[in-house]
Amino acid sequence: MTTQVALSNVGKTFPASPTTAALHALGPIDLELQRGEFFAVVGPSGCGKSTLLEIIAGLTPATQGSVEFEGRRIAGEAPDSIGVVFQEDASLPWLDVTENVAFGLRRSKLAKDERDARVRDALRLVGLSDFATSYPAQLSGGMRQRVCIARTLVMQPRLILLDEPFGALDQQTRLLMGDELLLMWRATGATVFLITHALDEATMLADRIGVMSARPGRLIDVVETNWPRERDSRIVERSEFGAITARLWKTLREESLKTIGRAVPKPAADA
């Protein structure tokens, strides 16, 4: 196991604007991602998860601490070999599915055959081969998100960041999408960093799960699942599944209560 991403003492404070005060949104955070692992992050909403992801992606600079990707410092520019799937639908409505997936490859010096082959493989991996000439508007939300995943995959990233990619989908679709994500993770060998608000999703998918505090978000727990690499959504039948999810919720409950503005209730006295 080698370290691929190293965050040390990373924090973010948004500067004050004419209408808002300065906001300490994140950190400090120390975290190392191992090459090839599946890491999930859970935390109350507004705790800085997306901000953390954007810092790793090089979309926004940290205001404190340092971020290294494969030994190089990231400073506010997106490095190659990092792919991102956002929560919002980022499919391009004026391009069909094939053109969407090939979008990032235009600039590369690949031969046309090679390019077409990559697009075909990615479409097969996300199960959209039959929709190659459809437009995003003709697809369901889950399929559009898979288009975005395929678009990321063709770039063959070594690190894939996903920001609540299934947040807008219904529960059954999410479970199935989770299965596909696991397949893709094994097939590509890439490192996956997944933000989710669904605790069961984190437990089902990840090797390790980071739990964040309310804003400013810090890591308050990191849970190892010890699942085998070959796994799918049927893992929910295992007894450890419930135990791990319960542990996550226990840690998160207090933090989540803080964000909805409630005082933390005292535990009821044992009867």
Binding site: E54, A57, L59, A78, D80, I82, G83, V84, F86, E88, D89, A90, L92, F103, G104, R107, M155
Partner: peptide, 22 residues
């Protein structure tokens, strides 16, 4: 949508490409 511009940055499009293609 801001997310499209973020996508452009992830794909390291030039400013001109971003303007014309996104």
């Amino acid at each position: 949508p801001p997310v499209l511009l973020k996508t452009g940055r992830i794909m390291r499009l030039t400013p001109i490409d971003t303007a014309l293609r996104l």
